[in-house]
Amino acid sequence: MATPLRPSISPDTEFFWNGLRERLLFIQRCSSCGALRHPPRPMCPHCLSTEWDTIESAGRGTVHSFVMPQHPQFPFMDYPYIVALIDLAEGIRLVSNLIGIEPENAWIDMPVEVCFTEFDDGFVLHQFRPEER
């Protein structure tokens, strides 16, 4: 299995990547007005509060858009792969991979659920697969 590129992590974003190691998908929540936001950042754009905590996402959502990059071919990816923009049920959007399905069977608005893929050195990435009934 190819090993993906590693993210850069800042004090604003480390809670997210740390959560993945525990198989948890965290979403940042404003402590003042309760608004959720992603990607993480220090200030809430609705109320300008810098106080925040996190909620644990249920990991369910739908596919907003998806594509199959083919060129240039990166040595750190296995082909073909699907990049998907996911609408999480909690109301935020994030980019991930859609796995466990052939590209020709995937469709926009299909229900999906999170899963966690561990790579050789213990790096864990959140990915999505078709929702199990």
Binding site: P4, L5, R6, P7, S8, I9, S10, T13, P39, S65, F66, V67, P69, H71, P72, F74, F76, M77, Y81, V83, L85, L94, V95, S96, N97, I108, L125
Partner: peptide
């Protein structure tokens, strides 16, 4: 890796064509 790209590169979304393709799809 730039911080903003960290939300995309691990998933293999790291060329301008692929960035715009997510919108266009």
């Amino acid at each position: 890796m730039p911080l903003w790209l960290s939300w995309y590169a691990p998933f293999g979304l790291l060329s301008p064509a692929s960035w715009i393709a997510v919108h266009a799809r």
